[in-house]
Design a protein around this nucleic acid. Structure first.
Lengths: 188, 188
DNA sequence: TTAGACATGTAATGGGTTACATGATTGT
DNA sequence: ACAATCATGTAACCCATTACATGTCTAA
């Protein structure tokens, strides 16, 4: 149950409309918690019902009209409660690793191309993060900035890990080239 | 749509009953794709319907009776197709990072305790992985073993990243101690 | 014959994804 | 008038999670 809290955080940082939130979830917040506009609108409705947020008085309540939300004290309290509680980390759930394990059984056809593709994607993401760090956190000292920088550095660390691991994986798979494996149809 | 393929992979490695699969998802496979027994039973039903797997003839079809499954050629073909296709990596979705960002807005109460708790959990998981690597992959040379080792090394790399990042985060947060931040109720 | 472990399954709920629908605003 | 874009919203489907239900086997 993190999406409502992601939205509360975003709205505390800056009151916004549903579409503006969607845009922000495509940028900074989406870097560690993605969401589509449908999820966001549905959740905004629930949060309003629960009394955690309200539409800014200026906004007309009609379809197609912009409608901005702000967080109410109850919403801030709920976010504080959630942020200060306990929550176990979720186990890894990664399809590429699963496909690697499957490749060990049914053969490595197309595997190195896919690894190369992922390597390119992760290098791009890493470059994007590093650009943000250089631009926005040159000499951050305020506590909020330090925490936000920590979050960004997690993204950088994760992408760095993937780049290094993919390079290692490619080296291994390339080395196996020509070697008979199950399902490769090279050895019966 | 990875769970059915995870099950096909597991069944190709060794035909099993639903409960036996559940056990294996708690160990090796679950290290990168977790699933509960309910998910597994439901998916086994679908896979059987689709003609990808079948119950071993020996198994009686009654409730409470063990029922073992094996993969049919169509199932192997489907797994091959899936493993050799393209699939983009999913964006990061991590509640702890979200809570850190929320802490930047509502205050850091209880944050360092939670970071310490996560650090302990990740250190434990890392030790478990390294034990498996030492025990099972002392001098692996077969292609399948190399791929399985690569998967394990991804787990090790990820846990290593988290341990290092959490240490960095703890140092930062400890350094902020006593410094006024939003919602800390130390500065109004 | 009862308790406990083994084994499979149903039901309810909620989140995530995709496709589609509707209205408002702006520029030409 | 028209098209494009902005903006909000509905509907359907699937997956994941949790709680619960049912039957079998084994051994005290």
């Amino acid at each position: 149950m993190s999406l409502p809290h992601a939205i509360l955080t975003a709205l505390l940082e800056k009151p916004s409309s549903g579409l503006a939130l969607t845009r922000r979830f495509d940028r900074s917040i989406g870097y560690f918690w993605s969401a589509t506009h449908q999820q966001i609108y549905r959740e905004l409705g629930k949060l309003e019902q629960a009394g955690f947020i309200r539409a800014l008085p200026s906004a007309q309540p009609s379809r197609g009209q912009k409608k901005e939300f702000e967080v109410l004290p109850a919403g801030r309290a709920e976010l504080t409660r959630w942020a200060s509680g306990e929550q176990d980390p979720k186990p890894i759930r990664d399809a590429l690793l699963l496909r690697l394990r499957a490749s060990a059984v049914v053969g490595r056809d197309g595997l190195d191309a896919e690894l190369r593709r992922h390597l390119t994607l992760h290098r791009g993401q890493l470059a994007e993060y590093q650009e943000i760090e250089d631009r926005d956190f040159g000499a951050a000292t305020a506590p909020e900035d330090r925490l936000r920088r920590l979050v960004l550095r997690a993204g950088i660390g994760l992408e760095t890990f993937w780049v290094e691991w993919l390079e290692e994986a490619l080296a291994e798979v390339t080395q196996m080239e020509g070697v008979t494996g199950p399902g490769d149809d090279a050895g019966g």
